[in-house]
Design a protein around this nucleic acid. Structure first.
Ligand SMILES: [Mn+2]
Ligand SMILES: [Mn+2]
Ligand SMILES: [Zn+2]
Ligand SMILES: [Zn+2]
Lengths: 135, 135
DNA sequence: TTTTTACTTTAGAATTATTATAAACTAGGA
DNA sequence: TCCTAGTTTATAATAATTCTAAAGTAAAAA
C-alpha cells in the first residue's frame, strides 16, 4: 500500500490526512501481514519506529477513527486492554493466554455444521470462534 | 441446592464459610437456572435481595475466590466490565449488544465440522463460540 | 471454654485503561 | 492570505479493579 493510498483511505472515510493519522496509518497498513495491537503496544511501537511524538489521546482518537471508518476491527480478549486488528475481514482467532498473543484463523478454516437459531425477534449478526491455546 | 451444600462447596474448595461468602453463594447457586452477572450488577442485586451489607472489595474477593475454586467462570464480552457465569459447563453464548445480555447455548447445540490445528507446540484448550445478535 | 492464629472483611487509597476538556495548532476552502 | 472547522495535546476526570492495613471472625490449639 503506497502513500497515495493512505491519503485516499483517509479522505474516503472523511478523515483529514493529518501528520499523525498518516504516520499511524502508514505504520498500521503499509505492511504485508495484518496484525493485532493494543493502544499501549502501538504507542511503544510508534515511539520505536518513528521520530514523531504522539499524545496517547491522539493514538486513542486515531485508532477509534480508523475503527469507525472500518479500517480496523476490535477483538475481544479476556483482560483489561482493548485489542485492535488490522484484519477487517470476517475471521477467527487462536488465543495464547501465556503470551497474550492472538493468531488469525481464516474464516474458511472453520466450518460450523450446526448452530442454534437466534432468540425471538433477534437475528445473527456474526459468529466468532475463539480457540484458547495451552502448552 | 441446600444450605449444607453451600457449606460443603465452600469447605471443599478451601474457603471458610463466612457470613458474606455464604450469603453470596446462596444468592448465586441456590437457583434453578444459571446466570451471568458483573460485580456491579451482583452488588445491586445483593443490596436488593439481602439485608446484609457487602464492601465492594468483598464482592470482588468472593467472586474471584469462587472462580478460582471453579464455582464460577468468566465470559469475555466486548466492554469494560468483567462478566461472570454460574454456568461452569463448557458452553457457548449469544450476545445482544443492545441490551448487553448474554444467553447460554448448550455445547451440544453447536457442532463444529472443521477447525485448524493448533500452532506448533501448542494444544487446543477449548473452543468458544460467540454469536453476536442484532434486531 | 478460652486463647491463639490465620484468614477475612472493610473503607479508603492506589492503579490502570480509557475518555473528556479546553487551549493551541493546522488543513484546506474562500 | 485568511478563516474556520477539525485536530492534537497535556492534563484532568472517570470507571473498573486491585491494593492496603486495620479491625473483625472462624476454627485450631491449649
Ligand atoms: Mn487499548
Ligand atoms: Mn465486574
Ligand atoms: Zn485477527
Ligand atoms: Zn453462560
Amino acid at each position: 500500500m503506497k502513500k497515495i493510498d493512505i491519503f485516499k483511505k483517509l479522505r474516503s472515510s472523511g478523515l483529514r490526512p493529518t501528520k499523525q493519522r498518516v504516520e499511524i496509518a502508514k505504520f498500521l497498513f503499509e505492511r504485508d501481514k495484518t496484525f493485532h495491537f493494543t493502544v499501549e503496544s502501538l504507542d511503544k511501537l510508534l515511539a520505536k519506529r518513528t521520530t514523531s511524538k504522539f499524545a496517547l489521546a491522539t493514538i486513542y482518537n486515531t485508532v477509534h477513527a480508523f475503527k469507525k471508518a472500518g479500517h480496523l476491527s476490535e477483538v475481544e480478549v479476556r483482560g483489561k486492554k482493548t485489542y485492535f486488528d488490522t484484519n477487517i475481514t470476517n475471521h477467527h482467532h487462536f488465543y495464547d493466554s501465556e503470551t497474550c498473543e492472538l493468531i488469525d484463523i481464516d474464516a474458511n478454516d472453520v466450518v460450523i455444521q450446526k448452530i442454534p437459531k437466534a432468540p425471538n425477534g433477534k437475528k445473527i449478526k456474526n459468529v466468532e470462534v475463539f480457540i484458547n491455546l495451552k502448552n
